[in-house]
Design a protein around this nucleic acid. Structure first.
Lengths: 125, 125
DNA sequence: CTTATCTTGACAACACCATTGTCATGGTTT
DNA sequence: AAACCATGACAATGGTGTTGTCAAGATAAG
């Protein structure tokens, strides 16, 4: 217990540099910078301007990858969905997964496929 | 029993053939057929298989036009947004509009009641 | 110091998508 | 008969997503 009081395990703590983050989400570092330019993810920076991604950032990117690759949504659509979620203050995206897994075996929750232990990109383990 | 609410003014009543509907939303009839193929709109059909669009269909198409043209969302994104809205059973898309109007005390969603002849949820045209 | 990795910015290739448009053949409406 | 609709096919245009590279400079770690 008391894991919630350990900042070194905080999901918001920035830890991964861009090359590691890119590996975690099976994307090119170039792609991650584009996501940032598009305002879809905002990794922290070291005092010397180096990007550091947190676990939350990774999960957010995995959502982007799922929406774009599995559902064919473009970045503008992802931005709209994120904006909607923030505006409603709810995890509305989870509703998409309930449908995907229950409706039919169309979209299994497995966006990553390069040995990533994380099979669930939904924010909220 | 019949016509208790003047069905001739029901927003769900199919009235417009495709050429008229296309004019109303400033799109090509070809585009409207694509929307239907993509499952984004489902106009009624006459017994002889002619498409007839209702006011609700028109408004739905205007949402598609707004999302695609003004926000750059692709059809897959529109489908996801519609799916999310249907799954949550709320008019979540209206939350996107508050951003454009910047009005906090916007008119509350009033489902089921189409008392106003024109709610005009469509983008400024 | 040397090496590897990071930064921004630009350029580009590849495949895919949205929209409009046309053509053809045939059914429907007026 | 004329005008419209249905389906299906084909294509052109412009845009997007992703990856990739090259450059020049800053930073981290050996």
């Amino acid at each position: 217990m008391s894991a919630a009081r350990r900042p070194d395990r905080d999901a918001t703590r920035p830890v991964y540099v861009i090359s590691v983050a890119a590996t975690l989400v099976s994307a090119h570092p170039r792609t991650l910078r584009i996501y940032e330019d598009e305002g879809l993810v905002c990794p922290a920076r070291t005092p010397t301007n180096i990007r550091l991604y947190s676990e939350e950032d990774i999960r957010r990117i995995l959502w982007i990858r799922h929406l774009t690759r599995d559902r064919g949504v473009n970045l503008a659509g992802v931005r709209t969905l994120f904006e909607l979620e923030e505006r409603l203050g709810k995890r509305i995206l989870e509703a998409l997964y309930d449908e995907g897994t229950r409706g039919r075996g169309e979209a299994p929750p497995e966006p990553g496929s390069t040995g990533t232990p994380d099979g669930d990109p939904s924010p909220g383990r």
